[in-house]
Simulated assay, not measured.
Amino acid sequence: MPLTISTWNINSVRLRIDLVAKFLKATRPDVLCLQETKCPDDAFPLKPLAKLGYVHVATNGQKGYHGVAVVSRLPFEAVDRRSFCDKQDCRHVAVTFGERAGLKDPATLHNFYVPAGGDEPDAAVNPKFAHKLQFLDEMRSAAGLHAAPGARAILVGDLNVAPLEHDVWSHKQMLKVVSHTPIECEKLGAVRAAGQWVDAMRMHVPATEKLYTWWSYRAADWAASDRGRRLDHVWVSPAIGDRVSAMTVSRAARGWTQPSDHVPVTVKLEI
């Protein structure tokens, strides 16, 4: 069956619930993964989502910071939440879809929000950057993120690293900017290699072409300057590496009223 999954760093779900609704009405994915929800679980805006048919929700949130959620039209078989770096930051939630969702074989979906890392790319002087590097190291070694042979898994989210040359507007100018430094790119690559994850977005847009999902609020005219980065990712396990039939980056959402600085990414899987 086809399964459509969208991922979006919404930068406050309560502030932008109308934009979430606008996107869901227009795109109708089966599942929407949100990051940076900035919302405790008991305050998550369930009613507007339920009115649109998204009645299955798994959250891992906290007041004012971080937070992730999976919003779905399909029921879950299981929900898992993990902590990293001995912190209580809410940066991960995973759900498993199975027979109740119409799947013959189960599929697990991980939703991540990796720390941004601050402004100074030096772990010795910037604790936020040190935290980011440790988080990526723990992702690499996490047993549950190493796909067993035949396992059907998807990993999405704001991973806060633009790893490839054309994932940023200027490779040379970004080498010393947090999100594209060599050590971050190396560590994210190690996470992907450890789990044998397939980069679903680059299956549809060659690595030689520019591909962005984020544009800074600081730009006077984000579209004209087009100084973007690909911070949001969709990875799939080898067992379904050839099942991604479509991929869309909803660039227009960056131009909506009071937008997030990220835009949604949607993939269609034939699983």
Results as ranks from 00 to 15, higher is better:
Ala190Phe: 05
Ala219Val: 01
Leu188Met: 13
Lys210Cys: 01
Met203Asn: 09
Cys185Val: 08
Trp222Tyr: 11
Asp199Arg: 09
Asp199Phe: 06
Ala200His: 09
Trp215Tyr: 08
Leu211Gly: 04
Ala224His: 02
Arg218Ile: 03
Lys210Ile: 09
His180Gly: 08
Val178Ile: 13
Asp199Lys: 08
Pro182Gln: 14
Val177Ile: 14
Arg218Tyr: 02
Ala223Phe: 02
Ala200Gly: 05
Cys185Ala: 14
Cys185Met: 09
Ala190Glu: 14
Val191Thr: 10
Lys187Phe: 04
Ala190Asn: 12
Trp214Gln: 05
Ala193Val: 03
Val178Cys: 09
Ala193Glu: 15
Val198Trp: 05
Asp199Trp: 08
Lys210Met: 07
Arg192Trp: 03
Lys210Tyr: 04
Ala219Trp: 07
Lys210Arg: 13
Leu188His: 08
Ile183Met: 10
Lys176Ser: 08
Ala200Ile: 03
Met201Gln: 14
Val177Phe: 04
Ile183Arg: 12
Arg202Gln: 09
Ala223Tyr: 01
Tyr217Leu: 06
Leu188Tyr: 07
Ala207Ser: 12
His180Asn: 13
Glu184Pro: 02
Asp221Phe: 01
Met203Leu: 15
Ser225Leu: 03
Ala219Pro: 00
Ala223Glu: 07
Tyr212Asp: 09
Lys176Glu: 12
Glu186Thr: 11
Ala207Trp: 00
Val198Ala: 05
Tyr212Cys: 04
Val178His: 10
Tyr217Val: 06
Arg202Lys: 05
Val205Gly: 00
Met203Phe: 00
Tyr212Phe: 15
Pro206Tyr: 04
Cys185Asn: 14
Lys210Pro: 00
Ala219Ile: 00
Ile183Ser: 11
Asp199Cys: 06
Leu211His: 12
Ala220Thr: 06
Trp214Asp: 02
Ser225Cys: 02
Tyr217Gly: 03
Cys185Tyr: 05
Ser216Glu: 08
Ser225Gly: 01
Ala219Lys: 03
Arg218Ala: 04
Ser225Asp: 03
Gln196Arg: 15
Asp199Pro: 01
His180Asp: 11
Asp221His: 04
Pro182Asp: 15
Met201Asn: 12
Arg192Tyr: 00
Ser216Leu: 07
Val178Gln: 08
Ala193Met: 07
Ala190Met: 10
Lys176His: 07
Met203Gly: 10
Glu186Cys: 00
Tyr212Pro: 01
Ser216Gly: 05
Ala200Gln: 07
Gln196Asp: 14
Gly189Ile: 10
Pro206Cys: 02
Glu186Ile: 00
Ile183His: 05
Tyr217Gln: 08
Thr208Lys: 07
Asp199Ile: 04
Val191Glu: 12
Pro182Leu: 11
Trp222Ser: 02
Lys176Val: 01
Arg192Ile: 15
Val177Tyr: 07
Ala200Glu: 10
Thr181Trp: 06
Thr208Cys: 01
Leu211Arg: 10
Gln196Met: 12
Trp197Gln: 09
Cys185Glu: 11
Thr213Phe: 04
Asp221Trp: 03
Gln196Ser: 14
Tyr217Trp: 10
Tyr212Arg: 03
Lys187His: 13
Trp197Glu: 11
Ala224Trp: 01
Tyr212Gly: 04
Trp214Asn: 04
